[in-house]
Amino acid sequence: MNDALSDTRANAIQVDHVTLELGDRAILDDATFTVRRGEFIGVLGPNGAGKTTLMRALLGLLPLSSGSIRVDGQAVVRGNPSIGYMPQIRSGLAGRRVRGRDFVAMAADGHHWGLPHASPAVRADVERVLDLVDAHALAARPLSELSGGERQRLLLAQCLLGKPKVLLLDEPLISLDPRHQTGVVDLVRRVQRELGITVLFSAHELNPLLNSLDRVLYLGKGRAALGTVDEVITKAVLSRLYGSPIDVMRVNGRIFVMSGDVEIDKLDHAHEEGDEGHEHEHEHDHEHDHAHGHKAKGKHTHNV
């Protein structure tokens, strides 16, 4: 009994025989896996495999067709303060004149799109997270003057408000050049190690994460494979997840997942997971609970 309780407390996320459906399609079909506390997990998979859908289920925003999910030992609930969440970000931030510090504080009040009235406690927490991501200089400048990588630094600061135990980062590398991608991954890894928190970091390509991740969660055809890079990024496993023959090539410390003569991320990830209701650079109405139990609603355009 005590051993079982100890095992539960050692796990950050437990997915047990979970089926997730969108319309008549099973995004996950009887998936079971466990993420341990303090792990950095890269979440990958073909277009429409369910990376965003899984994160929304962890946030309690999508009902499960069957099975159960526990986060930090507790059943999934909407607005879980243990989770920090960075949604897929699109156009809109680049033109905003709001200062970086005010932008970060907006997440604490749930007022992402209006200036906050921050309490002393919120202001102190904002300074704490700005220090964590080394963004005090950025905090004094408007978002419109910042690069994509610099804005991602402030978005990560938002996620850290309230001291979450789990971070869900949904495609934070989109639209960033390789140098900024490396900077974002290194920053997340440093903060993750410093705080001892768990990170699920979804991405279109494995290589930017290779030097930082502990294990890979690969989704495809309703299945989930979780393990080390050597265990998961293999011809046999990926062919099963893609439902077609896949080759894996290792060249100069990089890994290339190939379908015939075409690299998978070039073929399959030229656009966002449209089957899951998210597209690049277009306006959409949405409502979701932001990290730490705050709700934001409205029509936004996001792009970094």
Rank of each mutant, 00 (worst) to 15 (best):
R190H: 12
R101T: 07
I197G: 07
K221C: 15
E281G: 12
E171F: 04
G222K: 01
G274P: 12
L143T: 05
A94I: 10
E283K: 13
D3N: 00
I255D: 08
Q74F: 14
S82V: 14
S244K: 15
H269W: 04
L138F: 03
P81R: 05
L44D: 04
V251W: 08
D131Q: 12
D177C: 06
L219Q: 02
D7I: 15
G92C: 05
I13S: 01
E39Y: 00
A57V: 00
L241E: 03
E194N: 04
L22F: 04
L130E: 05
D29K: 08
G67C: 00
L155F: 09
R193A: 12
L206T: 02
E171G: 01
A12P: 01
R254L: 09
H282E: 08
E21F: 09
R36D: 02
Q14S: 11
V216F: 14
V122H: 13
G253K: 05
G162C: 03
V232T: 03
I246D: 07
G42E: 08
D214L: 05
A94H: 11
Y85N: 05
M249K: 14
S175H: 10
V229L: 03
R128L: 00
S82Q: 15
I83V: 04
H300M: 15
I246M: 14
L213I: 02
A31Y: 02
S82E: 14
V188C: 01
E39M: 05
D247K: 10
K51N: 02
A270E: 12
V166M: 13
H269I: 13
L187E: 06
D16S: 04
P120D: 03
R223H: 10
K297H: 14
I233E: 09
M258E: 05
G95Q: 11
R70L: 11
S65I: 09
L132M: 03
I83E: 02
N303F: 15
V43W: 06
L187V: 04
E283D: 11
D125M: 05
E231S: 06
R153E: 03
L130I: 03
V216Q: 04
G253I: 00
A224G: 10
V304S: 13
L154V: 07
